[in-house]
Design a protein around this nucleic acid. Structure first.
Length: 877
RNA sequence: GGGUGAUUAGCUCAGCUGGUUAGAGCAUCACAUUGACAUUGUGAAGGUCACUGGUUCGAGUCCAGUAUCACCCACCA
């Protein structure tokens, strides 16, 4: 393409879909294809990431966009470095969330519940919905530019993953890690299912708090409707107020539905400082109460049924919903004279299902559990699931970034209770257990013979997610993929699912495979709006990544999400930030445009080997090498933001603002082209689209896709000798030009004014060599070389180079003299501090040698500057 | 109640194991504009690094305490 034909501005819309299509067509997202095509060596070291599967029914939000940007960056980087790189995509069936969404739609449209439809019909509907929704999320994922290997796409509920789930379940069942037991669970009467502890949201609410007379005691509650069955009264054994009562003592008293006999229980669970220090318990509907009851072998009586209605024990209130019953019960107690006091505004937390919104009603239920404390043998040692999870991180086999989350992780495990894995919903992995009369059978496939009834429950969605790193690679089969890519190299996700998912993957992998699921965990922050608020529908501040892509391009969005964010810290993103990165993509585009214009109008052809001629060439190549080395190191340490900033600074302030300007005076196309193409490679992982577009434009047709070009290899040698030397005299010239600009600004001389300067000393050669550059960039009219100076001049100095700007008739000398006197005293002060520092024995002895050298150089430099200043002052007077 | 983190320019944030006169982007102001780029360029202004102590030759960086904010966990009968 000719320079004239390249549009003035980069329009992402014209390129992105086309380029993504080209990448997909090439097959290079698939590491096997890369090996076939020879872009990756057969024996290359594998590098793998599994994509945290988005919910099928979800849409792409900025958090997932951030995740994709980071992962794609790392994956593209590794691929270019020559690793056998696999990034494996998939989606999650998100059982409860998906089913409740579909149920809601069906109810709104047809007024039907799932029970009207029946299990089979509902599942069909859910699957249809999931399928349609799947395509949306995949489309959105591609829009970001994700280089995922779609040929390996998995779904948590597809046949292979289902098989893995059943296999895992059976193994755990056989070893009694999974058991069935009656426990108190979080029951959602609306969804008719259990909810895990982690999936509960507490909503603060003010409700009346009642004090009732309970025999000789006063008890408090917000929930009078649970009190029918209360026949145990609990107090702390050390409570002096009640020492006359003995544990186990019976007391007759009048209660809601007539006289009852209550039993005194002394238990440390009673809080002496709360209320009267006495409480009655409802073991069937409160975990704490349930535990007290278990400790003392008390009766556990159900008061409220699964629909949230009172049972016959409530007598006249039986069948009523808890809300309506509550007031009536209080009324009845009032008429009986048992209400002591009511606090109308009592603030407390109500547990709700975060996936559906129903108010949680604890119930005692038979559920399937994973025992995290059961001891078993592993490699000759007695372990538990808990200890396996702890060891994986403690031993350093898994590294969590940022490190502080390791603490959070351990804390969570310390407080971990058995994990309830059964759910009473229909969409999900059906529990592979069958019953016949009293018999129970657990197997990967259904048992032979009739009359077997499969357990109606399904598994918690995180059960299958826990297998994700290896179920996606073919486990339980011993596949090549599993051998090659597991454990995976990196897991990158938001810190909000550390417990839900990361911990459970570690649990499943250490238990089932006796290895870790990944070596490094990189946790990104949550994406917030410009004000720092969480994005939410109710605040109407959601930034839709697709809108951003449509407006500014995927590259700009990616940069905005990656640069300026560090692991574990939240990122704020708004239009403004994205716009500034859009501007940058355009900057790069125009650099490319310039390079292209030059190449078509000059004779020289682009070449892979740069042939440095001028000082400027040496300088830019040296800087390129430094930058490439640093960027490589930073990405390898997952300091992506810093890497991006370094690259941007180099691209903009060194390459574009200096080298390209110099190129206009002193052409060297091989270097210009080399630096530019290297930059495209370095930028590619950050902004794949615009770099690939420019690569296509600037190259000849035999070129590969940039996506599989080799990462600049001399970057790796950054610790050794520099690939090119010299450049110091040119750096002086650049410094000098900057000095002159600064002086113009200082004296408030119009930067466009062309001045004459006198150059003195041994630096003549360098100036002469770069005279054209000097004249163009510093707007110098004439350069004299002389040992004698004209009367009124300002000194511009950089290192050993000295130039004197003629100021006659340009400035007000008196005012400037005063200003300079001030500056001189500041400089003197600075020198004094440096001198003190360097005369300090402790500093000399204890500081690192290079620090001391640096300080000495600084002092030398400062002294020289001061001398020049004095000289300058003298010349003004 | 327990825990974690944050506090650096008007705003958003970098600043990795202590060692330049503390940086960037945006916003502001001034100036420039035939140029690959007005999606631009050159500059300026703007900071007691929350506070108080401590360790150290040296602290934005390490330690202790205080304040404010944010988040996580537990949970109130």
């Amino acid at each position: 393409m000719n320079g004239q034909e390249i549009p003035k501005a980069y329009d992402a819309k014209d390129w992105e879909d086309k380029l993504y299509h080209a990448w997909e067509e090439s097959g290079f997202f698939n590491p096997d294809k890369c090996i076939e095509a020879g872009v990756t060596k057969v024996d290359a070291v594998p590098f793998s990431i599994v994509l945290p599967p988005p919910n099928v029914t979800g849409t792409l939000h900025t958090g997932s966009a951030c995740m994709l940007a980071i992962e794609d960056l790392i994956v593209r980087f590794k691929r270019m470095q020559g690793y056998r790189t696999l990034w494996l995509p998939g989606t999650d069936h998100a059982a409860i969330a998906t089913q409740s969404k579909v149920e809601k739609i069906i109810f709104e449209e047809e007024g039907k519940t799932r029970h009207d439809l029946g299990r089979e019909e509902l599942l069909k509907r859910v699957e249809t919905f999931a399928k349609a929704s799947h395509d949306t999320i995949i489309h959105q994922t591609k829009k970001i530019g994700s280089s995922l290997d779609w040929s390996r796409e998995a779904y948590t509920l597809d046949e292979k993953r289902n098989f893995a789930v059943r296999t895992a379940f059976k193994k755990m069942f056989d070893e009694a890690i999974i058991y069935r037991g009656e426990r108190i669970v979080n029951w959602d009467p609306e969804m008719q299912t259990t909810v895990s502890d982690d999936e509960i949201d507490y909503v603060e609410k003010n409700s009346p708090f009642y004090y009732f007379q309970y025999g000789p005691f006063v008890i408090g509650t917000v929930r009078p409707e649970t009190k029918f069955g209360d026949k145990y009264v609990v107090m702390h054994p050390d409570d002096e107020r009640y020492k006359e009562y003995q544990h186990g003592q019976k007391i007759d008293l009048e209660w809601i539905n007539g006289p009852i006999t209550a039993t005194i229980i002394k238990d440390t669970a009673g809080d002496m400082t709360f209320g009267s220090g006495v409480m009655t318990i409802t073991p069937a509907h409160s975990r704490i109460d349930f535990e007290i009851a278990k400790r003392h072998g008390l009766d556990i009586e159900q008061i409220i049924d699964d629909q949230g209605k009172l049972l016959p024990i409530a007598k006249e209130f039986a069948g009523q919903g808890i809300k309506e019953a509550r007031k009536k019960i209080v009324e009845k107690l009032k008429t009986k004279g048992l209400v002591v006091k009511v606090d109308e505004q009592y603030a407390h937390n109500i547990a709700t299902n975060s996936r559906g919104g129903g108010v949680i009603e604890p119930q005692v239920k038979k559920q399937w559990w994973i025992n995290v404390n059961k001891e078993f043998e592993r490699a000759g040692k007695t372990v538990t699931l808990k200890s396996l999870m702890q060891d994986a991180v403690r031993s350093g086999k898994i590294k969590i970034l940022p490190e502080r989350f390791e603490k959070v992780y351990f804390h969570w495990i310390d407080n971990l209770r058995d994990w309830c894995i059964s759910r009473q919903i229909w969409y999900g992995h059906r529990i592979p257990v069958w019953y016949k009369n009293e018999e129970i059978y657990c197997g990967i496939e259904a048992p032979e013979g009739d009359d077997w009834q499969q357990d109606p429950d399904t598994l918690d969605t995180w059960f299958s997610s826990g297998l994700w790193t290896f179920s996606t690679l073919g486990w339980p089969e011993h596949t090549e993929d599993l051998k090659t890519y597991h454990p995976t190299a990196l897991l990158e996700t938001g810190y909000d699912i550390l417990f839900f998912w990361i911990a459970r993957m570690i649990l499943m992998t250490t238990y089932l495979l006796d290895t870790v699921p990944f070596k490094t965990v990189y946790l990104h922050g949550l994406v917030r709006d410009e004000q720092g608020h969480k994005m939410s529908k109710s605040l109407d501040n959601i930034i839709d990544p697709l809108d951003m892509i449509a407006d500014y391009g995927a590259d700009a969005l990616r940069l905005a999400l990656v640069i300026g964010s560090s692991p574990g810290n939240d990122v704020r993103v708004g239009d403004e930030k994205i716009i500034s990165f859009r501007n940058f993509t355009n900057k790069l585009w125009n650099i490319g445009r310039y390079v292209q214009t030059q190449l078509t109008t000059s004779d020289s052809q682009p070449t892979i080997v740069p042939i440095p001629k001028s000082d400027a060439d040496h300088w830019i190549l040296k800087r390129l090498q430094d930058t490439a080395g640093e960027v490589t190191r930073l990405i390898e340490n997952y300091q992506l933001s810093l890497a991006g900033e370094k690259l941007r600074d180099f691209t903009w302030t060194e390459f574009a603002d200096w080298y390209v300007e110099i190129h206009k005076v002193e052409k060297n196309d091989t270097v210009l082209c080399f630096v530019f193409e290297t930059l495209l490679k370095l930028w590619h992982p950050f902004m794949p689209y615009v770099t690939e577009a420019l690569w296509g434009i600037s190259g000849n047709n035999t070129k590969n896709l940039l996506m599989v070009e080799q990462w600049p290899s001399f970057a790796k040698a950054s610790e050794g000798k520099p690939a090119v030397d010299g450049a110091s005299s040119f750096q002086l010239v650049i410094g000098l030009i900057q000095e002159i600009r600064a002086i113009k600004a200082f004296y408030q001389i119009d930067p466009a004014t062309k001045l004459s300067i006198t150059v003195r000393g041994e630096s003549q050669q360098s100036i002469q060599k770069n005279e054209a550059i000097f004249k163009r960039l510093a707007r110098i009219n004439e350069i004299h070389f002389s040992e004698t100076l004209p009367p009124h001049t300002a000194l511009a100095q950089c290192g050993s180079l000295q130039t004197f700007i003629e100021l006659e008739g340009v400035i007000d000398f008196d005012a400037e003299t005063k200003r300079l006197e001030n500056e001189k005293s500041e400089k003197a002060k600075y020198i004094a501090t440096l001198e003190t520092k360097l005369s300090n024995k402790n500093f000399i002895e204890r500081a690192k040698p290079d620090v001391v050298v640096a300080e000495r150089l600084k002092l030398e430099e400062a002294r020289k500057q001061l001398a020049d200043f004095e000289h300058h002052l003298a010349s003004l007077v």
